[in-house]
Design a protein around this nucleic acid. Structure first.
Length: 287
DNA sequence: AAGAGGCCCTGATAGC
DNA sequence: TGCTATCAGGGCCTCT
């Protein structure tokens, strides 16, 4: 589900809800996420304050008082829900008003505050919560990831240098988090359509101008998606259950068989598979 | 050693 | 209705 824009939407709404709040109670219902929840997990949250909620790439970073962090990754199907406690008097489940958006199954983690609780739901359990004990470990944790598209380090010389001598196609490069972090399968297709570059094209064959376009349009697409509240296909919603709007702006993703949206093009969008990931493009516009 | 593919897991949907 | 097959927004691991 979540690429950088969706995670950023979750971050923004989550921070408003839990910043500066004290954790009163934690319930773990299923420890078997992608990274197993350790037995001492609760102690890092209990009676700690949420200093802020940050993000790098597709990872949320919960800053906990006393210098610890909790990294949250939503995997493919993870969602975070906030439920307000309008009675404000106890921590039993029934004291929280029912949220119509909260699924009945797969609510693995619940973190309680005085007047609300957050619930982590993840049917496929590809996501995780991971405690990071200090700044050094935090830096190390993200060491293998490339710059975000917004970073000044994601520039022409970096891109040209990364592509040099490589046989990998550009679609796989955009999905490679070591190269650039935060782009996933939806936005990779959208970016390449905007750049008019064929997803199969070997990155080393891209012109300087095409590389500039990749940089420019990666920023453009992700920023626009954030502005629209992310993309909601299937089940992405923000923490209060509102859907994003960017899926209405998809030019190629999930548009197989439909007419290309470029003016004057009468071709239809094709769906193909590259490295087992669905890829959408216009054969006429993307060379 | 770069790069492709399999795999972790459950649910929704399509087709019979 | 109910079975089976396929696919899904990620990322790590293994094999070639």
């Amino acid at each position: 589900m979540p690429e950088l824009p969706e995670v950023e939407i979750v971050r923004q709404s989550l921070e408003k809800k839990i910043r500066n709040k004290l954790v009163k109670k934690v319930i773990i219902r299923n420890r078997n996420l992608r990274i197993k929840i350790p037995s001492n997990f609760k102690s890092y949250f209990l009676n700690k304050e949420i200093i802020k909620v940050g993000r790098f790439s597709k990872y949320l970073i919960i800053f906990l008082s006393q210098g610890c962090y909790c990294i949250v990754h939503l995997g493919m199907s993870g969602t975070i829900h906030v439920l307000d406690n309008k009675k404000n008097n106890s921590f039993t489940n029934t004291s929280f008003y029912h949220s119509p958006y909260l699924p009945k199954k797969h609510n693995h983690i619940e973190i309680f505050f005085n007047n609300c609780k957050i619930v982590y739901n993840d049917p496929r359990r590809f996501g995780f919560f991971q405690i990071i004990k200090d700044d050094f470990q935090l830096k190390k944790r993200f060491n293998h990831l490339g710059p975000e598209p917004f970073s000044i380090n994601f520039n022409l010389s970096y891109v040209l240098n990364s592509f040099k001598g490589k046989s990998k196609n550009i679609k796989n490069f955009l999905l490679d988090q070591k190269f650039v972090s935060g782009i996933g399968n939806i936005y990779a297709s959208e970016i390449l359509f905007l750049c008019k570059i064929n997803p199969f094209k070997k990155a080393s064959l891209l012109s300087e101008n095409e590389c500039q376009n990749i940089i420019k349009n990666s920023k453009k697409i992700l920023l626009k998606a954030i502005k629209k509240g992310g993309s909601s296909i299937r089940d992405f919603k923000d923490i209060s259950g509102s859907k994003g709007e960017f899926q209405k702006n998809f030019k190629v993703y999930l548009q197989a068989g439909k007419k290309c949206k470029n003016l004057g093009c009468s071709d239809r969008i094709k769906k193909i598979f590259i490295s087992n990931r669905s890829t959408f493009f216009c054969h006429s516009c993307q060379k």
